[in-house]
Write a protein that binds this DNA or RNA. Structure first.
Length: 470
RNA sequence: GGCGCCUUGGCGGAGUAGCUACGCAGCGGUCUGCAAAACCGCGUACACGGGUGCAAAUCCCGUAGGUGCCUCCA
């Protein structure tokens, strides 16, 4: 399987260190507010990575952290802790805020049918590991202390700017923010921050240097190494993390171990709404609830995510959601053929049922080309709606649906049968049609439509399909 | 101001040298009692200007527009 590697700027064949296991570390959410659909885009894309690895007979070992402390309003280690800020906003403690949004997030993964990570470690549960890592850095001479904390001296790590192709001097020249004048280099970052002397934080811990809390970056190194070892197979995250967060992770991790931190870096691009990026400050941070309020299943949202490639900046709009909803209806109409074997289903034309998931897997294995996989699936769906031969292919058809779901997570094989009453209505309509009682037949069709069941008449008899209820 | 990226038909969106995906919407047709269903067909898309190649949407240079990061942020 191939994946674009930010480290080498090339699409590469994945070679895990200890096949079939593939270790994956993903930068998870900072749990201080509701995630917006842009956040969910990225998590759906990591899900595709894990599903595709599994389809390739790998065993992904996936760790996603939950940042519940220390992520400051500015990545440059300035400003407030987001958790503390969220606490003030909601008149709760930082602990309560973290708990609430962690649960919400984990629940959201399930709602979106995202594969459950093997572990979802929290930063606050790994303070000891973070302190130990800072001690090791200190022992190697990478740290220094100033008034507000312990910092990593990036000038001691010569490859610092390589990963993000940063020109450090240019960054300095172009910087628009004031850097802490005590820092030795503008790119230096906090490993441990001291609690302010005049106030008490909700979250703070003792450390060899004084009471305080860990810097944002150190948690990822500490937890990934604890659970997945010193060198990861794959590290994934949002494209915005390349210049600061991941650059810092690499610096502090490789400074400690002397080994490469991750062999493959996967970065997901962002989505825009009306040509603008999603940002809380822009007020366009739609949530899953907003999608459901418009009457769309979350599978529709997943299909929309699949329709674009993870490395291109893509667009969200309600028009696009509508298109995705129509497309999903087609796929569902194909899936429910399994409940209508009297019409017969079997292998056909260009592809056998066995070939279909294989082809989808092949396309996904080419740097997660989900748009191509969907294009293929749409062709299959179109052909299947007209080719109906014999009932002996039913088992293979159901297996095909399951395998497609394993790859794409669209839950096509989960769609159940209609009720016996609804089947009776369809039979009743057939009787009316035979009697040429069109008024009665149309009345029944209307009744079924209200229940979300559409019927189309074919040479093989009536075939029902899930109709969108709006 | 610095450093990147992008520009494909009405919309979304793949493809990255040679048979011009796919979906949505639209139009025309077939089937049908009818059909909102299904199927078939259509619109001659690759920002603009140069260049390299037998061949460019695909490579190179330039122009225009957009956008990302350097603040928040996936």
């Amino acid at each position: 399987m191939k994946l674009y590697n930010t480290l080498t700027k090339k699409v590469e064949q994945i070679k895990p260190q200890h096949p079939p296991v593939v270790t994956i570390y993903t930068c998870g959410p900072t749990v201080y507010d509701y995630p917006h659909i842009g956040n969910w885009f990225t998590f759906l894309r990591y899900d595709l990575l894990v599903r595709t690895l599994r389809a390739n007979a790998y065993e992904p070992k996936w760790v996603m952290n939950i940042t519940d402390v220390g992520h400051l309003v500015s990545d440059a280690d300035e400003g407030e802790d987001k958790l503390e800020k969220g606490a003030r906003r909601e008149h709760k403690t930082a602990w309560e805020v973290a708990e609430y949004y962690s649960s919400y997030f984990i629940n959201g993964l399930a709602r979106l049918n995202i594969m459950q990570p093997n572990m979802l470690p929290k930063a606050t549960h790994h303070i000891k590991e973070q302190i130990e890592l800072i001690l090791r850095l200190e022992a190697k001479g990478y740290t220094y202390q100033i008034e507000d904390g312990i910092y990593f001296d990036t000038s001691k790590f010569p490859r610092y700017g390589d990963f993000a192709q940063l020109d450090i001097d240019e960054l300095q020249a172009g910087a628009r923010v004031e850097v802490n004048p005590e820092k030795r280099n503008p790119t230096d970052f906090a490993l441990w921050k001291f609690s302010p002397k005049d106030s008490k934080r909700d979250m703070e811990w003792p450390s060899p240097w004084g009471t305080g809390f860990p810097g944002w970056h150190i948690e990822c190194s500490a937890m990934s190494m604890k659970y997945l070892g010193e060198t990861l197979d794959v590290h994934s995250g949002g494209i915005d993390h390349i210049p600061v967060h991941h650059t810092n992770e690499i610096a502090q991790s490789e400074a400690v171990t002397g080994k490469r931190f991750a062999n493959y870096w996967m970065h997901t691009n962002h989505i825009t709404i009306s040509g603008e990026k999603i940002a809380k400050s822009a007020g366009n941070g739609l949530t899953l609830e907003d999608i459901e309020a418009k009457g769309y299943d979350l599978e529709v949202f997943r299909l929309l995510v699949l329709e674009s490639h993870y490395r291109t900046q893509s667009t969200f709009s309600w028009e696009a959601m509508e298109a995705a909803a129509n497309r999903l209806q087609d796929l569902r109409a194909m899936a429910v053929l399994r409940w209508q074997p009297q019409h017969g289903i079997s292998d056909y034309g260009t592809f056998s049922f066995e070939d279909v998931p294989q082809e989808i897997g092949r396309l996904m294995s080419e740097d997660l080309n989900s748009p191509a996989a969907l294009a293929f699936l749409s062709q299959v769906s179109t052909q299947l709606s007209t080719v109906l031969v014999g009932a002996n292919g039913l088992d293979h058809f159901i297996l095909m649906l399951r395998k497609i779901d394993e790859l794409l997570g669209l839950k096509l094989s989960d769609i159940g049968d209609i009720t016996p009453e609804q089947k009776q209505l369809i039979a009743k309509r057939e009787e009316s049609r035979l009697a040429k009682d069109w008024a009665s037949a149309d009345r029944v069709r209307q009744e079924l439509l209200k229940q979300g069941v559409g019927v189309r008449d074919t040479p093989y008899g009536p075939i029902w399909f899930p109709e969108r209820l709006q």
